[in-house]
C-alpha cells in the first residue's frame, strides 16, 4: 500500500464529516467505516454558539488523521489564506486543496489549482489537490510539489460514481507510483470497489454515507467495498474474454 506523505493508513477509506443527521450518527458511521482520515473545514464562528469547539471535541475523539479542506474557495488567494488558517487551527501540514472553477459542477479551476499548489508546497504544506483526470494537469501538479493526486470520480455530491473510466485508467497507468485518491462523486459502495479494482490507493467520500437512509449501515458497506476492491486489484484479475470458455473440464464428459 502506498503512503500519503509518509502516512500509512489503517484503511483506504477517507470520510467527510458533513451533512450527517446528528453528531452521534457521525461518530457511529466513522466507527463502522473504519476510515483512517476525516475531512474538515473552516467556517465563520459566531461567538455566542461556539459551534467550532463542540464540533472539534467530537472529531478529535475519532482518533483519525485530520485533512482540512479549502472547500468553497474560488481564487488562489482565498485557498492559500484558508490553508494558512487551517494549518494553524488543526496543527497539520496536510491540506485538501480545492479551487473551484464552475458552480454547477464544482469542477476544479485547474489553472488556479496548480498555482496554489506550487505556493503551498513551497511553504511546506503537504497538498492533496482535488483535480480532474487530466494528465497534463496531473503532471503540472506533481511538478509543483504535490506527491499525492485526488482526481474526481464525478461532480461533488452527485453520487454518479466514476464518470470517465477511460480517463481515470489512463491517469492511473501514466503515474503508477503516485498515490491517488478518488475524491468526489461516489454514490454507491460498488463505485468505491470499482475505483479500488482499478488500482487507486484510497477513496474519499462524504455524501454517499451521510445522506443515506441509514448512514451507519452504509458506512459499514463502504468499509467492505473498499477492502473487496483492493483485494481484487492485488489478486491480479483475469483478462475479460469476448466469447464463452467452459469452466467445467470437457475431458471426461460422457457420450450420451
Amino acid at each position: 500500500m502506498k503512503d500519503f506523505y509518509g502516512f500509512k493508513p489503517k484503511s483506504q477509506l477517507m470520510l467527510g464529516t458533513a451533512q450527517y443527521p446528528s453528531p452521534s450518527i457521525l461518530v457511529s458511521s466513522f466507527k463502522k467505516s473504519n476510515a483512517s482520515v476525516a475531512t474538515v473545514s473552516l467556517r465563520r464562528e459566531s461567538g455566542n454558539i461556539n459551534s467550532g469547539n463542540s464540533f472539534w471535541s467530537i472529531i478529535k475523539d475519532l482518533n483519525v488523521k485530520i485533512l482540512p479542506n479549502t472547500a468553497g474557495c474560488h481564487t488562489v488567494k482565498e485557498a492559500v489564506t484558508t490553508a494558512h488558517m487551517a494549518r494553524e487551527i488543526f496543527n497539520t501540514k496536510w491540506i485538501k486543496l480545492e479551487v473551484i472553477g464552475e458552480e454547477d459542477t464544482l469542477q476544479p479551476d485547474v489553472f488556479g489549482l496548480v498555482e496554489a499548489a506550487k505556493i503551498l508546497s513551497e511553504e511546506g504544506f503537504e497538498v492533496f489537490p482535488y483535480t480532474t483526470e487530466d494528465l497534463v494537469v496531473a503532471d503540472k501538479l506533481l511538478k509543483s510539489g504535490c506527491k499525492v493526486l485526488m482526481p474526481w470520480g464525478s461532480p461533488i455530491g452527485s453520487g454518479q460514481g466514476l464518470n470517465n473510466i477511460f480517463g481515470l485508467k489512463a491517469l492511473r497507468s501514466h503515474f503508477p507510483d503516485i498515490p491517488m485518491i478518488i475524491d468526489a462523486g461516489i454514490g454507491l459502495p460498488s463505485h468505491a470497489t470499482r475505483a479500488m479494482e482499478m488500482g487507486f490507493d484510497a477513496v474519499l467520500l462524504n455524501t454517499a454515507v451521510a445522506k443515506a437512509g441509514n448512514p451507519i449501515m452504509m458506512a459499514e458497506a463502504f468499509s467492505h467495498a473498499i477492502v473487496a476492491g483492493a483485494l481484487g486489484y492485488q489478486s491480479d484479475p483475469m483478462e475479460p474474454r469476448d466469447m464463452a470458455n467452459p469452466s467445467t473440464p470437457i475431458i471426461g464428459k460422457a457420450f450420451l
Binding site: 451533512q19 473545514s41 464562528e45 464540533f55 472547500a71
Partner: peptide, 10 residues
C-alpha cells in the same frame, strides 16, 4: 475581520 473555527467538511 474573519473569525473561523473547525466545522464539518467533505
Amino acid at each position: 475581520l474573519e473569525v473561523l473555527s473547525p466545522q464539518q467538511g467533505g
